[in-house]
């Protein structure tokens, strides 16, 4: 299998719905918590080590062939915000569509049928990576990077932030993305042996609270 499949899956233009989600950045911008690139960096760093770590571990475990149904339930337990569960399943369903069109496979069809309204996005991402011939670390990299690139591009639109500054934030976070991926892949290996309880459960209270507030706004630019 081709390593370049990783570039296809990780490409921000991969048509899987991510462009309509801010990863909590819209709520943080409105709350005055992100006003420039420093705030964006602090936001992304926190998201990476919490939601990003959990997502990356779920994706890595799915890429290793762990039962998607068990992983999906574990994602539910680690996503107490209803608004975030809804967003994750919506994105999972959109990613499933894109992945099935890109890498047709029985394995994806089976998960699509099990979750007609969408499995959690990181679980679908891991299965997609698997059928694309990629490994657990590739899946974890996609997921961890998405956890920061999504908010960064949303903040470029929300604050008219200089896109070079936003890209600089992502570059500065790269060593931490490496570490989070390492931890995620290690946890995924433990899941294979000991079950989904070995998944990390790092939580970010402001993301959870902000997501519920955002979902109740009558007018917003992003779906989450």
């Amino acid at each position: 299998m081709s390593r370049a499949a990783l570039l296809v899956l990780a490409d921000g233009r991969f048509p899987a719905g991510g462009h309509a989600h801010s990863g909590g950045a819209e709520a943080a911008v409105k709350g005055g918590l992100i006003t420039g690139s420093d705030g964006l960096e602090a936001f992304c760093r926190g998201r990476l080590h919490t939601a990003g770590l959990v997502s990356a571990a779920l994706a890595a475990a799915a890429a290793l062939g762990v039962d998607p149904v068990a992983l999906d339930a574990a994602a539910d337990a680690r996503t107490p915000s209803l608004a975030l569960r809804v967003a994750s399943r919506k994105l999972g369903r959109q990613l499933m569509r894109a992945a099935r069109a890109t890498w047709p496979s029985r394995e994806l069809d089976v998960v699509a049928r099990e979750f007609p309204k969408g499995a959690h996005q990181p679980v679908v991402l891991g299965v997609a990576a698997r059928v694309a011939g990629l490994g657990a670390d590739d899946a974890a990299y996609c997921s961890a990077y998405e956890s920061v690139s999504g908010p960064a591009s949303a903040v470029v639109r929300l604050l008219s932030l200089d896109p070079f500054d936003a890209t600089g934030v992502l570059a500065r976070l790269a060593p931490e993305v490496d570490r989070v991926v390492g931890a995620a892949v290690e946890a995924a290996g433990e899941v294979v042996v000991g079950g989904v309880d070995a998944l990390p459960a790092a939580s970010a209270p402001l993301l959870e609270i902000g997501a519920e507030a955002h979902a109740a706004w009558p007018v917003r630019l992003f779906a989450s």
Binding site: G31, G39, F43, G46
Partner: peptide, 16 residues
Amino acid sequence: PGGWDGPAVLGGHRAL
């Protein structure tokens, strides 16, 4: 882990 006191996690709050 980094960012724990930042705008995604605790945002300077001292009680959770």
